Simulated assay, not measured.
Amino acid sequence: MTKMTIVQAICDGMRVALKTDPSVIVLGEDVGKNGGVFRATDGLWEEFGDERVIDTPLAEAGIVGTSIGLAVNGFRPVAEIQFMGFIYPAFEQIVTHAARLRTRTQGVFPASLVIRAPYGGGIRAPELHCDSTESLFVHIPGLKVVVPSTPSDAKGLLLAAIKDPDPVIFLEPMRIYRSVKEEVPEGWFEVPLGKARRVREGDDLSVFAWGAMVPIAEKAAREWEQKGVSCDVIDLRTLYPLDEETIIESIKKTGRAVIVHEAPKTAGLGAELIALIQEHAFLYLEAPIARVTGYDAPVPMFALEDHFLPGVERVSQAIGQVASF
């Protein structure tokens, strides 16, 4: 095993996939010689050449459209969109074609492609570089949506996504790209899509989070553990399909929940989680479910960014309110 950051683990995952499977192709803006805007593809162009690691024009619809064509013809493209806020020109290709291809052709044509996109705030980037609009893609039948929060998960989930027969939106939390290192297995290994990870075991309250909000939720949970409240912290990892079994099992154990995401509150994935819990575990609830989220506004410029994003203080306050209800 080797210690890696999340961005290093993602790069290593693509390297392993390129070595293992000749049908894998990496493409996107500056992914080749430059190694990507965050260096997530650093060294791949030198190792595998410009027929497998391809610099594209600045045209997101073209990147995704090309990836769909490659997938139809038996390749497994891994497309990079430099920032999630740049993905909207490709939204029509994703929704109208990638997500519907297998259904439209009754399974005749494959649609195995991965669309990687750094997302979320906390890096002092300008407008459209910090969006967290994962719920747009969770709402689209035919897509899978994945968000890692640790280096090991980043590599294992990416390799599982590359192998998956469906198109996968793979969102990478920029805020924690390089904030932590951990041991990551070498070679090919997979973390199953659709399975959540229990970060901390607890009996008093469930905390659900994903991406860069997982370490925030974990830190708030540690603070409350010192006060006698034990939190069951769940990293969803896959936003679609959700691991409903783990979510409901946790609620039945604790009877209380806090949901944390940096996306805007209205129609965010937190609302879907609340509906899921209401449908399957309503009689187990002992308190209203709390959401700690971003605000219903565009991500602000630098001076207000820390106020906009959920932090330990806001999460801790929500835990206290739900635990004492």
Rank of each mutant, 00 (worst) to 15 (best):
D131T: 07
P118Y: 10
V114P: 02
P148C: 02
V260R: 01
A79I: 10
T266F: 14
V53Y: 07
I54H: 04
V214F: 02
Y177T: 12
A212H: 14
A290P: 00
C130E: 13
I259W: 03
P110G: 13
V199A: 10
V312I: 15
D296H: 05
A40N: 10
M14R: 09
L70D: 06
S135F: 05
L101T: 06
E201Y: 13
T105Y: 11
D55K: 05
V312E: 14
S149K: 09
A220K: 06
G122F: 03
E286R: 09
V147T: 06
A221H: 03
V53T: 07
A220L: 06
L157N: 08
F109I: 01
D204S: 07
D243R: 00
A297R: 11
C231E: 04
G320W: 13
V24E: 09
E305M: 04
V299M: 06
G65Y: 06
V233N: 08
P77C: 04
Q8C: 11
V260F: 02
L304K: 07
R200M: 15
W210F: 15
Y177E: 11
I176M: 12
W224S: 04
G211M: 11
E249W: 00
P57K: 09
F302M: 10
K265D: 11
E92N: 14
V138S: 00
A99V: 14
D42K: 12
L205M: 12
E182S: 11
L70Y: 12
A160I: 08
V260M: 03
L158P: 04
E183D: 15
M14G: 06
Q321F: 14
D232W: 08
R102P: 00
V214E: 01
G13R: 10
G294Q: 02
Q82M: 15
E201A: 15
C11K: 15
V191Q: 03
G255A: 02
E80S: 10
R116L: 05
V16T: 14
E244W: 01
S149H: 14
M14D: 09
K155A: 10
E286H: 05
M4H: 08
F137D: 00
E225R: 14
V31I: 12
V16G: 07
V72Y: 15
D166N: 13
P173F: 05
D50Q: 14
G49Y: 13
F189C: 06
L285C: 06
G142A: 09
I251P: 00
P57F: 08
L283V: 03
G187S: 13
G36D: 11
Q226A: 13
R116C: 08
C11F: 06
E127V: 14
K227Q: 11
V233C: 11
E183N: 14
S112F: 00
P298A: 05
D232G: 08
V168T: 07
A61P: 02
A98H: 12
D30P: 04
E249T: 04
T96Y: 13
S112M: 00
A281H: 00
K163C: 05
H97G: 10
A79D: 08
V299T: 01
V145T: 01
V114G: 02
E313F: 12
R237D: 08
T133E: 07
P141A: 10
N34A: 15
V214D: 01
V16F: 08
L58F: 09
G156Q: 07
K3W: 06
E305K: 03
V114L: 01
A271C: 14
F308S: 01
G74A: 12
Y284D: 13
L18A: 06
K33L: 15
